[in-house]
Design a protein around this nucleic acid. Structure first.
Lengths: 191, 191
DNA sequence: CCGGATTGCCTAATGGCATTAGGCATGTAC
DNA sequence: GTACATGCCTAATGCCATTAGGCAATCCGG
């Protein structure tokens, strides 16, 4: 009885893990189920990935990269409200198309890993978007945090189904929100 | 050898579970560890709680109640920016003092359970806060969703440590954010 | 082609976990 | 003081993550 090798690599395993996360949810990614998908026994995964923790970390890093790449592409040649909307849309679309990967994005990384991750590109891009608005420090940092909060909060609540499926549509709320954020950033604070 | 009874009830178990969540994190709440804390063998918990799922659901419902009660108390006699800040502060403070319970707040409940939970009081309170601003539908609903997004997003990111511990302080960002949100809700949209 | 080194995947074992079944002892009511 | 109810127990099951060690498929120098 001659056996066939699956030919796995760390990359392939992590990729399959990301797909599994999108289908079942990030917290349900499990070596047992992932091995089933890869056509391999559970123990064999440990040749490519140190542990479940390691696997989840790698999925998180992959998701952060993908999201940062997509955002960078969408941001090219845009400024002001256009740039803001492009960035925010990329995040929302990514979360809808890849819910498990988006959830992975919030996985707690240890500080060193996080510092080397694409997470830093995200905050750099947010700062770049704010170049289109006339904000000095510390307002610029406040604004970075605000944008991060709104986008992350909105996307989390929407994907969790917290916005009841009634009128008005979440799409309408989304553009309304971006409009108001844009206005908020353009206007000087009232006295 | 005469044995002593612990005298557990469902309430006591859930309360201990909430404390455990705050200490170890909501996702690390486990019948085994909870039993240890209650001075009882693991199997004995199942007389008071149907399953781990049931336990987590009950912790989530407890947290939603506590948070809604605190918010309702803080909201009494306030309107406008005062009310907005009071509500938002209650959420942030609760998340800081009870991180595990706050995380439980985001636990996915089945729709029937959610409809009977204190979650509905939360959205009613948000709508009530917006009575202090001059918003007609659908803007009012948009604004409810925006407030929920900002508060939840900010609190999540701050507790996750996403706001690097550098200047300006997160407290400064918090009041800046509430100021700007208040202004955003008071001003009519620009043409 | 061929023999040996490499290594990808296997089986087997361990220990932890959630959950269920059934028993015994502790409290309660007559 | 006997009888019932029930709070907690021990024991067993089956799933999971992880590790150790073995075998066979591939690769590589002749």
């Amino acid at each position: 009885m001659t056996r066939v090798r699956a030919g796995l690599t760390t990359e392939r395993v992590v990729q399959a893990g990301a797909e599994l996360a999108d289908e079942l949810g990030f917290e349900r990614v499990t070596p047992t189920e992932l091995a089933r998908r890869c056509g391999v026994r559970t123990a064999s995964l440990y040749a490519h990935v140190k542990s479940l923790q390691d696997l989840k970390t790698r999925i998180a890093l992959l998701a952060l990269e993908e999201l940062a790449d997509a955002a960078a592409a969408a941001l090219a040649g845009r400024a002001g409200r256009d740039a803001l909307a492009a960035f925010a849309d990329v995040c929302r679309d990514y979360a809808r198309q890849h819910p498990g990967r988006y959830a992975a994005t919030q996985f707690r990384l240890d500080p060193d890993t996080a510092a080397d991750s694409a997470a830093v590109r995200h905050s750099l891009m947010l700062r770049a978007i704010l170049r289109g608005y006339d904000l000095a420090e510390p307002d610029r940092t406040h604004a970075v945090r605000l944008l991060g909060s709104v986008i992350h909060g909105y996307v989390s609540l929407e994907t969790a189904g917290s916005f009841s499926h009634s009128a008005p549509s979440t799409q309408d709320t989304w553009v309304w929100t971006l409009d108001r954020l844009d206005a908020l950033l353009r206007n000087r604070p009232a006295p």
